[in-house]
């Protein structure tokens, strides 16, 4: 979108939602009208979000590609940059550049059952594709949405999950390792929810994002249930600074997560998946 792949563009915070104590969503609008009109992305891609004077972080885009009013970014405040961004308010400016990386295989998923499995804030890189599917519901088969959190208070977008559960041919399964009062769903590991999911291995595609240990255990169960390796897609996370495959931080064996991923088909990352240190 710019001559230098490293140069951000100014964006204004069009809206800000506090999702939980530590998680917030910024709807960002490029201030340059031409750049805003030209901007295109696919679910699962990410932007580099720049906080003035501090630095950049890679944040996945949670809004829908056809949503013209703003680009949604759901962020957990955890480090130097995100703690600073958390203090910004509606109307403030920051920089963004992108979109980067390979998104979810939405075309390959058409006509098939889709299982979306997320853990913690892994729901953010996946919510875009859930919205994408929900808005184009008749293009897809049965949809199963599974989300697990450590503590029930960590669940964001509760209303959305409740609304998705009302849709036809759509199953929503939620779990919290620790459930506070008023938690109507499963208490325990997200992996246990797979028992309740109806899986048709011949025609199912799985998309997942969450802690790697959770994804590993989930993949084991999926394979036992007959899901083929090539039907499992996952979004990976590594240190990203340039986002264009130059800076070297995000390497995962032969892959540059920023440009070859962040969404991978499981066989592409299988060799090192679960090996500590990569």
């Amino acid at each position: 979108m710019t001559a230098s792949p490293y140069l951000p563009l100014e964006a204004r915070i069009a809206d800000r939602h506090q999702e939980s104590d530590t998680v917030f969503t910024l709807d960002l609008e490029l201030t340059d009208a031409i750049a805003r009109a030209a901007y295109r992305f696919e679910p699962g891609q990410f932007n580099m979000v720049y906080l003035y004077g501090v630095g950049e972080v890679a944040i996945s885009i949670v809004s829908d590609p056809d949503d013209e009013h703003a680009l949604g970014h759901t962020i957990r405040r955890v480090g130097r940059v995100t703690n600073g961004i958390a203090k910004l308010r509606k109307g403030d400016c920051l920089g963004i550049r992108g979109p980067y990386g390979r998104g979810w295989p939405v075309e390959e998923a058409q006509g098939r059952d889709v299982v979306l499995i997320t853990g913690g804030l892994g729901c953010a890189p996946v919510v875009g594709v859930i919205n994408y599917i929900v808005r184009r519901r008749d293009l897809f088969g049965h949809v199963t949405i599974i989300q697990g959190v450590k503590h029930s208070a960590d669940l964001i977008w509760r209303g959305r999950y409740e609304q998705w559960a009302t849709l036809p041919d759509t199953q929503v399964l939620l779990a919290a390792d620790v459930a506070g009062p008023g938690w109507p769903w499963h208490q325990g590991r997200v992996t246990a929810l797979l028992d309740q999911a109806t899986l048709n291995p011949a025609n199912t595609i799985v998309m997942m994002c969450g802690p790697e240990i959770m994804m590993r255990l989930t993949i084991d169960i999926l394979l036992q249930r007959g899901i083929r390796e090539q039907d499992i897609w996952l979004s990976m996370e590594r240190n990203m600074q340039c986002a264009v495959g130059h800076c070297g931080h995000c390497q995962y064996g032969p892959q540059f997560v920023c440009k070859d991923g962040p969404v991978f088909c499981y066989p592409e990352v299988k060799a090192l998946f679960g090996v500590s240190g990569f």
């Binding site: 490293y6 003035y52 004077g53 501090v54 630095g55 950049e56 600074q241 340039c242 130059h246 800076c247 070297g248 931080h249």
Partner: peptide, 25 residues
């Protein structure tokens, strides 16, 4: 080829430089 990106803000808050420098695994 690894390099990191780093920031050099001006003390008066009006500008900031964005640099890259060699990094190491």
């Amino acid at each position: 080829f690894c390099h990191r990106e780093t920031e050099e803000p001006q003390l008066d808050g009006t500008a900031s430089g964005h640099l890259r420098e060699w990094d190491s695994c």
